[in-house]
Nucleic acid binder design. Structure first.
Length: 980
RNA sequence: GGGCCUGUAGCUCAGUUAGGUUAGAGCGCACGCCUGAUAAGCGUGAGGUCGGUAGUUCAAAUCUACCCAGGCCCA
């Protein structure tokens, strides 16, 4: 006779008081072979096993938007201690890449965790808007349309740049939101709002007022055709033939007496820079030789008897160039021996009557040339840096056309390059003059890689130009910045040394750019004195105008409105250079943290990739140290860079780029967020198809843990809750573990160590819960009488686990934990993110119990090992078929006092025996003294709980059940009768 | 070339600061069990010259030097 199934499937468990809905029929009529499944309390939940994150996450986002979650959080945490993570602004062009995703997810995890630690983590995202890349995009458009940028009014050009930035802000904002990043997305900050531009002007004004801003000069890559400076990215390198010369600089002073009357040889491919020469660089660790020429070839301009200093490495080549066929070595030197030596310029007596000092230069090599480098501070970046460091002047020698200025002796008016980029007469005239002076040792030609303009394709030169600087020394900026570094917490600590090294040696900050899209260096220069106008009122008038009209006010306005009465605009030059964009972003702390309600200065934390030691951390530090005497942050956290699965840099050409949008679309943002915390982001991170798949695996375990909790908490009510004191040890052990993990979670959040947090939680879910606690308690949850103490204790703990796990994982799995939380608590404005981490009472701590259960699990491992052998021998399948006998020393047996080893090992029965077991018993090497003999459990199988017990069959009515199950079924039947 | 950093099982990481038992974990993998968490759950197992070489030491993943590979920032 077929068993008639009940009207419902499994008993539904409703709200409190929780009792099941009726089962199929009264127990008396249940036949011996009944299907008891419907009498079990099996898990039930609408929380699906398959996440479907790509579809579900946008729904959750929409709900957050709808309830105004960010606003609710601000209300909830009003008055709490603030945690301000100040957002480093990404540049507003292009879609997000994986590095953006890493950065913003990390920030989000930190903000959410600080919020749940009980703080007010108000996060205002921002964008960096000014600068070259956007200018190029607009220029590119003009080119495509056949327009010339220079013919477009600057205000119109700037407007197009602004619109371009706006467009990308909108796109990136949506992409960031999709990652689950929560913040004030409706009111982000940008560097191009009028208020921001005005504040940047004010900040610059502080450097003007302090006198730290000064006009100096610096060589830049210059196109004589376009008459403009070019940025690195606008430069192409092509082969070009250049003249080469070896030039002798006579020594006029040196420590070593042998050097008297000797000459230092330099080699260069730019003869035209010799008029700009002001020093010679040598390498400290290099070997040098002083030689005397004894024989020369016919074509040589070098006479025997001349004494020349050269580096040992390139000496033979250099002498060959000079036609020297015989020489003798007079002396040997180390570079360091040349310290303090001075030469005269080879054109001395013809307008070049200054000394040429020998300086140590760490860029000097012996690969080419003579081992000495001619230093023209106006014509090379390294030359300028070395010269500036030693107080050597940087002369202006050529104008914007590439023509020697009038004050240049001998060569005024000569051209380095012609108007169309061709070779001018400067090189030839300089070479001729050197030959006349007798200092030309050799000349030749060389084809080498040389910079050219990307636009005109004409060769470029390094040309000295006027620029605006912030002095590192005049007002003690360097010292202030170094002190600020020492007062800041750097995570990881190596960041301290990294930025310190940079600040210690960096030259003055070049603030000016000859560009259009940026905040102007809003300064007036007195035409006669060359001094910047230092007048608080003028600066305020400019800033106020910018606040109302934007920075265009500076470009479009009449200077008289700023200068005020009593000054003649004709006396002043208005500076139209713009600020280095690093000054913009370095000032964000002032127009965001200081001026926005709800925020605070300084920031609790700045968090960016490690490249920002040179970038934003650096510029923010200098800006704030100069204007406020300290860093704008209390702590700085850096993360590494994202590499591909093999640890290589990602590039389009390698085809190894992982786009965050693709991961989100295929797996979901929670998977990407899991990836972030699964790695040690203090170092470089890898991502590739396999690594993403691994995250999906880890995710499944966490999701299923939550699903198990939800399923077994169906209908849980407060009246069912049990006090820990009344709980079995197993439950109290779980509470102890929660106490331990709570501590770990809070410490990990303090340390921003989410990898440790993730590992701890994942291992806890997999090892302690799924493989141990849940596995053991499934029997009680499914089979025990509905309100049995053991079952109530377990459900109470499951409730606590749910509370803790959803909170602890919420900063990471922001979507999944929300889904799980709402599954149980679907309130209108309910959100897991509005919670704080649950209070875990100290009373849950029980070290003695933990020690005891370490023993329990050690014994259990021997049992499971023994069961596996029995399984292999086909003696058992399910562990419930077994009856293990555990032999252990008396101390271990005593430790199990009051515990049921059968329950713990999921066997039907277990026996504990003190003493050594039989020699054939199963043992594990790492559990000495413990052995297990697996017997088969005697008795019949309970058709409900599947335990094999001798008592089965003893119930007169339900002969196929054990006593416990018979009672449970009877209880259900009683209740069902009441209900029906 | 310089500054900072990294290299431990297929993957992600502990362990290195203060050298000391057979180098651990989770995942993956293989095999098996269960079929009442089921595109789940449980168990067992395999898998590592600790980037390489040389050195210090009774003893090195751990300290030193050099080398190789990779990253960021400079040059």
């Amino acid at each position: 006779m077929p068993v008639r199934r009940g009207t419902g499937a499994a008993p539904r468990i409703g709200g409190p008081p929780s009792f099941p809905v009726p089962v199929s029929r009264p127990p008396e009529t249940v036949p011996m072979t009944a299907d008891y499944k419907s009498t079990l309390f099996l898990p039930e939940t609408g929380f699906p096993m398959r996440a479907g994150l790509p579809r579900r996450e946008p729904e959750i986002l929409a709900r957050w938007e709808e309830i105004g979650l960010f606003g609710l959080l601000r209300e909830d945490s009003r008055g709490r201690e603030k945690f301000i993570l100040h957002d480093g602004p990404p540049y507003a062009n292009g879609h997000l890449h994986i590095g953006h995703a890493l950065n913003k997810i990390l920030k989000d995890v930190i903000n959410r965790s600080q919020q749940m630690l009980g703080k007010d983590a108000n996060y205002v995202p921002g964008w960096d808007c000014h600068g070259l890349p956007i200018e190029w995009m607009i220029e590119e458009r003009y080119r495509a349309a056949g327009r010339n940028k220079d013919e477009v009014p600057i205000v119109e050009f700037r407007r197009e740049c602004r619109e371009f930035a706006d467009k990308w802000i909108d796109i990136q904002r949506e992409e960031f939101k999709r990652l689950g990043v929560i913040g004030d997305w409706d009111n982000p900050y940008t560097t191009m709002t009028f208020a921001a531009e005005a504040q940047i002007v004010r900040e610059l004004g502080k450097f003007v007022m302090s006198g730290e801003l000064y006009r100096g000069s610096k060589p830049v890559m210059w196109s004589c055709v376009e008459k403009t400076a070019l940025a690195e990215a606008e430069i192409e390198y092509h082969d070009r033939a250049s003249p080469t010369i070896d030039v002798a600089f006579p020594v006029i002073a040196a420590r070593a007496p042998e050097l008297e009357g000797a000459e230092v040889a330099i080699w260069t491919t730019t003869p035209w820079t010799i008029p700009g020469n002001r020093a010679i660089a040598y390498g400290d660790g290099l070997d040098y030789r002083l030689i005397e020429v004894t024989r020369t070839g016919a074509a040589s301009g070098v006479a025997p008897g001349r004494r020349i200093v050269l580096a040992a490495g390139p000496m033979e080549d250099a002498l060959a160039r000079c036609g020297v066929s015989g020489h003798r070595e007079v002396a040997r030197f180390r570079g360091a021996d040349l310290e303090g030596a001075v030469c005269r310029h080879p054109l001395r007596g013809r307008g070049y009557d200054f000394d040429v000092p020998l300086l140590e230069g760490d860029h000097v090599t012996t690969e080419q040339g003579t081992g000495f480098v001619h230093i023209a501070p106006g014509h090379g970046a390294e030359d300028w840096a070395l010269g500036t460091r030693h107080g050597v002047e940087t002369p202006h020698t050529v104008d914007e056309d590439g023509r020697y200025l009038d004050h240049v002796p001998l060569f005024a008016g000569a051209r380095v390059l012609t108007g169309d980029g061709g070779e001018g007469d400067a090189n030839g005239r300089v070479i001729a003059a050197l030959a006349e002076s007798g200092c030309l040792l050799a000349k030749g030609r060389l084809v080498h890689s040389y910079p050219h303009s990307w636009r005109s394709k004409a060769p470029l030169i390094f040309r000295n130009t006027s620029q605006w600087f912030v002095s590192m020394e005049s007002n003690g900026l360097r010292d202030k910045a170094l002190a600020a570094i020492d007062a800041t917490r750097w995570v990881p600590p190596s960041g301290h040394a990294r930025i310190r090294g940079m600040i210690e040696t960096r030259p003055d900050w070049v603030l000016s750019r000859q560009r259009a899209w940026g905040v102007p260096i809003a300064v007036f220069v007195h035409k006669e004195t060359g001094e910047a106008l230092r007048d608080r009122a003028v600066i305020d008038r400019i800033a106020d105008a910018v606040e109302k009209e934007g920075a265009d006010a500076w470009f479009a306005g009449d200077p008289r409105r700023f200068l005020g009465d009593g000054r003649d605009a004709g006396d002043y030059e208005q500076v139209f250079d713009i600020l280095d964009v690093w000054f913009d972003s370095g000032s964000t702390h002032s127009f965001v943290l200081e001026r926005r309600p709800g925020l605070a200065w300084p920031a609790s934390l700045y968090l960016e990739g490690s490249d920002q030691h040179r970038g934003w951390f650096h510029s923010s530090l200098l800006e704030a140290a100069g204007t406020r005497g300290r860093a704008p942050y209390d702590a700085v956290l850096t993360h590494g860079f994202v590499l591909d699965g093999e640890g290589r840099k990602m590039s389009k050409s390698l085809g190894n780029v992982v786009a965050p949008q693709d991961v989100v679309e295929q797996y979901g943002a929670d998977i990407l967020r899991l990836w972030v915390v699964s790695a040690d982001y203090g170092e470089d991170l890898r991502i590739g198809p396999e690594i993403v798949r691994r995250q999906a695996d880890s995710y499944r375990r966490l999701r299923n843990t939550m699903r198990f909790l939800l399923g077994n908490l169906a209908g849980f009510g407060e009246d069912e809750r049990l006090d820990p004191a009344a709980m079995p040890e197993l439950e109290r052990w779980v509470l102890h573990r929660l106490w331990e993990i709570d501590r770990l979670v809070r410490k990990a959040c303090d340390d921003f160590d989410f990898h440790a947090l993730f590992v701890a939680l994942h291992t806890f879910c997999a090892t302690d819960l799924s493989a141990f606690y849940f596995d053991i308690r499934k029997d009680a949850l499914y089979c025990d009488p509905l309100n049995g103490t053991r079952r109530r204790a377990c459900r109470t703990v499951l409730d606590t686990l749910f509370s803790c796990l959803t909170a602890w994982l919420a900063p990471i799995l922001c979507f999944t934990t929300e889904e799980a939380w709402l599954q149980r608590f679907p309130g209108e404005k309910e959100s897991v993110h509005r919670r704080v981490f649950p209070e875990v009472p100290e009373s849950w701590r029980d070290d003695a119990l933990a020690a005891k259960w370490r023993t329990v699990r050690r014994l259990r491992r021997v049992v499971t090992g023994a069961l596996e052998v029995a399984r292999r021998e086909k003696r058992i399948g399910s562990s419930l078929q077994a009856h293990p006998a555990v032999h252990a020393d008396a101390a271990d047996i005593a430790a199990l006092d009051g515990l049921d080893m059968a329950e713990i090992a999921i066997a039907s029965r277990a026996t504990l025996v003190a003493g050594a077991g039989p020699s054939a018993a199963f043992r594990l090497d790492d559990a000495p003294g413990v052995s297990v003999v697996v017997k088969l459990a005697d008795g019949g199988r309970c058709e409900r709980c599947w335990m094999v017990l001798e008592e089965v069959g003893s119930d007169p009515v339900m002969g196929d059940l054990c006593t416990r199950c018979a009672g449970a079924v009877a209880e259900i039947a009683d209740v069902s009768e009441v209900v029906t």
